[in-house]
């Protein structure tokens, strides 16, 4: 189903993102190969100036990815009417086996891009660009990631077939295809809530701790990544049901709809920002070893940990508010 304006926009964008990252990586490659800070040659100046192009491209790709992630989900929801048994975005994403992989790849790409830009930001504070090699090696990793994401998205959209009437058959679509939308893993309310608050508490603790002792970012980053998954699972399993006041309605996307006061944005925005910062705090801190970043890197890590902590508090507050305001009770 490629002849659809939004799908075309998303495909065009992913092609542009691949091109953008490829150009950035190509320039990054020349930088990686020829970088020589000791040289005052004109060539070195050319390379230095290319770093601006690369970081600008990456920033644009990141923001484009954020917008495209949003549009992808929005579109999945809008397309649900075209698939039998699909009630909302989950159904559309399940209408083809590549739906969820494409979504997950997009999210992963978002995090990778943030990490890269944060490392880049750290590097720009050391007067001798100590991270140049690391940074551009990382960029080379981003190329397959963005290609993979674009490929999965293409596979998803090209595999989609709307269940439409054809003029010559009496095919019926209204057969029971129950369960199409129901295979998201679902935990019981109690363990899900424990997972949610336990995970949020742990990351909050770790990020406050990292703020005091930046070394701990080494623990914060992997925990934050794991907690992101845990929070998503519990949002699917229990938080969403509180929002819809229906124990059967597990959907992480409908939260974004006006019917539910756009509460999803209040939940996901701090979750994504907090996770992205917590995850990138570690690579950034790792670079304190460069003499020119000995001060700047820990300072950056600390401020990132601080913002991440604030984000986790916000996530917890939003979840608690959802549960408190809900008409659904699991426990009395």
């Amino acid at each position: 189903m490629l002849f659809h304006p939004t799908i075309m926009a998303l495909l065009l964008w992913s092609a542009a993102a691949v091109a953008g990252v490829a150009v950035a990586a190509a320039y990054g490659w020349t930088i990686l190969m020829e970088w020589n800070p000791a040289s005052g040659s004109a060539r070195q100046l050319v390379l230095e100036r290319r770093t601006y192009l690369v970081s600008t491209l990456m920033a644009v790709v990141l923001w484009g990815e954020v917008l495209s992630l949003w549009l992808f989900v929005y579109n999945a929801d809008a397309m649900a009417v075209m698939f039998v048994g699909a009630m909302c975005a989950v159904g559309s994403l399940n209408a083809d086996p590549y739906g969820f992989p494409a979504l997950i790849a997009k999210i992963a790409l978002f995090f990778l891009a943030v990490v890269w830009l944060q490392v880049n930001r750290a590097d720009n504070q050391g007067w001798d660009y100590p991270l140049v090699r690391v940074k551009y090696a990382l960029l080379l990793i981003l190329v397959p990631a963005v290609v993979l994401s674009a490929g999965l998205q293409y596979a998803y959209f090209s595999g989609l077939r709307a269940d439409v009437l054809t003029s010559c058959c009496s095919k019926l679509f209204e057969v029971d295809r129950e369960g199409v939308g129901a295979d998201m893993s679902s935990l019981a309310p109690m363990p899900a809530l424990v997972l949610l608050y336990g995970g949020l508490g742990l990351t909050l603790l770790l990020s406050v701790w990292t703020w005091r002792r930046p070394v701990l970012s080494a623990a914060l980053a992997p925990v934050a990544a794991a907690v992101f998954v845990a929070v998503m699972v519990s949002v699917v399993s229990v938080v969403s049901t509180y929002v819809y006041a229906q124990p059967q309605h597990h959907c992480p996307f409908c939260l974004l709809k006006p019917e539910y006061g756009y509460v999803g944005y209040a939940l996901y925005l701090p979750l994504f920002v907090g996770t992205a910062l917590a995850v990138s705090s570690w690579p950034v801190h790792h670079f304190r070893r460069a003499a020119s970043l000995a001060q700047a890197a820990p300072a950056m890590t600390r401020s990132m940990a601080w913002v991440a902590a604030a984000c986790y508090v916000a996530v917890a507050v939003v979840c608690t508010w959802i549960i408190a305001a809900s008409e659904l009770y699991y426990f009395r």
Partner: peptide, 22 residues
Amino acid sequence: ARPSSGRVALDGRDISGMPERF
């Protein structure tokens, strides 16, 4: 501009190889 060769020191600090940003 950076010199093509040689050193420039400002207040004792060598700045001749420094990236443009700094």
